[in-house]
Design a binder for these strands. Structure first.
Lengths: 98, 98
DNA sequence: TTGACACATCAATCACCGTTGATGTATGGT
DNA sequence: ACCATACATCAACGGTGATTGATGTGTCAA
């Protein structure tokens, strides 16, 4: 009974999304609250287009959400996402013999 | 103080290794003990060459170890690896505001 | 309405990954 | 020595992801 909120396919999408240095940096930057793209752009020193691509990937994986406020769009983490990943790893690890 | 056993680069290698359906199947199959390649080959229904490639990826990521016994090579999980990943996610998630 | 700003999307390129078939290597049986 | 087995490695191909520059979209100010 390996119950989990997400399907295996969805979890792989999440894993692929997390398995990237720049996207991990984004996640780390969002750890202490929401950020607009321009802030992330400065923090990561990445081009606007590239950053938008990575944010899209994270969004499609269900890891972040966005909110528009005037001209700015603020991105923030969805706490459950990483929790589901943790739970999945815990279940996988539980299958080990010792 | 984000202490962790592995560097960020190493963790990304582990994440990339785990972010694949067939490699996850291998990990699941190794969950209840070591298996030779021929056993995994039957379980996954994968070609010998392909399976060898995935096992190499997992090995280079530090997720599995191999042991030769006669003509057979037995692969088994390295428990710490997934634990480190869990710890990393826990630390990352701990940075969230709530 | 015109322009500046913040961001998304598109198009093109490049590199890397997954897959397959062929070949190489080590072990054991005869 | 020879052959079969179990596995690794190599070569080649196709697909997908990361990156960049150009263009499109929505918002605000003047």
């Amino acid at each position: 009974m390996t119950s989990s909120t997400r399907s295996l396919d969805e979890l792989i999408v999440v894993l692929k999304a997390v398995a990237d240095e720049k996207r991990l940096s984004i996640i780390a930057s969002l750890g202490d609250g929401e950020r607009c793209v321009c802030e992330l752009q400065q923090r990561l020193g990445a081009g606007q287009s590239l950053l938008s691509f990575h944010l899209r990937t994270l969004k499609e994986a269900g890891l972040v959400s966005d909110r528009r406020e005037g001209r700015w769009i603020y991105y923030s983490l969805i706490p459950e996402a990483l929790g589901d990943l943790e739970a999945f790893l815990r279940e996988t690890r539980a299958g080990e013999t010792r």
